Simulated assay, not measured.
Amino acid sequence: MTQPNTPICSIVPPYLLDRLVELGDEDARRSREVDTALRATRAAQPAARPGPTGRPGRTIADAEHLEYLPGRTVRTEGGPPTADPAVNRAYDGLGATSALLLEVYGRRSLDGAGLPLHATVHFGKRYDNAFWDGRRMVFGDGDGVLFGDFTHCPEVIGHELAHGLVQYGAALAYRGQSGALNESVADVFGSLAKQYALGQRAADADWLIGAGLLGPGVRGVALRSLKAPGTAYDDPRLGRDPQPSSMDGYVETDQDEGGVHINSGIPNRAFHLLALELGGAAWERAGRIWYDAVTDPALRPDTDFTGFARATVAAARARFGQGPVPQAVAGAWKQVGLAVD
């Protein structure tokens, strides 16, 4: 069930919006106010129940540019496409993530029991974010200058839904290293959902979160890069991507819930290194190891980077035996500054 402390997990980090607010950006100011209000007033909601077939049904609602949820239902499972591209992109994105979970990992939706998938589009006016609130995905249209429509990026949809996978799996606490793992797992499975839908091999994927989301005048390619943390953007308004790529650059901060969107670059890069080392499609072996680790009942909510690294090595051994695969997992973590047995 949805836990009372399930966080609001947004794709645009708060420190980015805070920087824009300091520069006088009114859209960012309003978006930040909305985010703060959502976190302050959010109450725990009962989890939706699986459909009779045990497979996830999709429901897309339209907030009609108001700040209310869930909005007016405009498309349901099996219904025809609408005239609104954002509705159709959200519907297809939910389906792509659901397909990855079911067809690759045998998991029926986020909870493993066919939990229905809900999303709301056109939330607010020029709202610069998308988020998972423990029950549904919510998409803003962006301001059209710095950020575009958040439904354009399938990996953003996969990222937010993957927060639900964590919620019903390890329930990693959204603070410090466990929170950075929460964000990293969401990035990993968001990227895998996109790669699976496109049939890409690990070596051919872009490994970006938010590819094409940034406005045409922004100096950057995405919000984050799993391949090269710290290189996604370097812009006079957004600043420079602060993600470290190894423990040597680990950021100690009270902002961003202890750096959950910042330090997630470290486990992100470990996964990318492993995926390249193993070769082929990243969802097959590297993704299976991460899936096994994050859904292991023994994984604690306060797990830190070292604890998760050990869990992935153990998962690799359990599934692939002693030999090159668990060695590759340990080697990937060593390259980002985490030595594990």
Results as ranks from 00 to 15, higher is better:
K227E: 05
T59H: 10
K125E: 15
R136E: 14
Y168V: 04
R319V: 07
V12K: 01
H152A: 14
R75L: 07
P236S: 08
P297R: 03
G134P: 08
A44W: 15
A186I: 10
S109M: 04
V166G: 04
R30Q: 14
R201L: 09
Y250E: 15
T306H: 14
G190W: 08
N268I: 05
R29F: 01
W207A: 10
R240F: 02
L172T: 12
L110E: 11
G321W: 03
P7I: 00
R310L: 12
G179K: 09
G239T: 03
V251C: 03
L223Q: 10
A270P: 06
A48N: 07
S31H: 05
A311I: 01
L161R: 02
Y233E: 03
D35P: 00
C153N: 10
R201Y: 12
R310D: 13
L38V: 02
G212H: 14
P81V: 00
A232W: 13
W132K: 03
T97L: 15
L20H: 01
E183A: 12
H261K: 08
P52L: 10
D84A: 08
H163I: 02
R136V: 04
G176F: 15
G215S: 10
P7D: 01
G93P: 01
Y68M: 15
S178E: 15
G287F: 05
G210I: 05
P229G: 04
G259W: 09
I209K: 08
P267G: 07
A43N: 00
F139M: 05
G321N: 12
L165M: 03
P116Y: 05
T306Y: 13
R19V: 05
I209C: 06
T151L: 03
G144H: 10
G112A: 06
D206V: 00
D18T: 11
G249A: 03
S264I: 14
L238R: 06
L273W: 13
L214S: 06
Y250L: 11
A61N: 13
D27M: 09
V121A: 08
D206L: 02
T73F: 07
I8K: 01
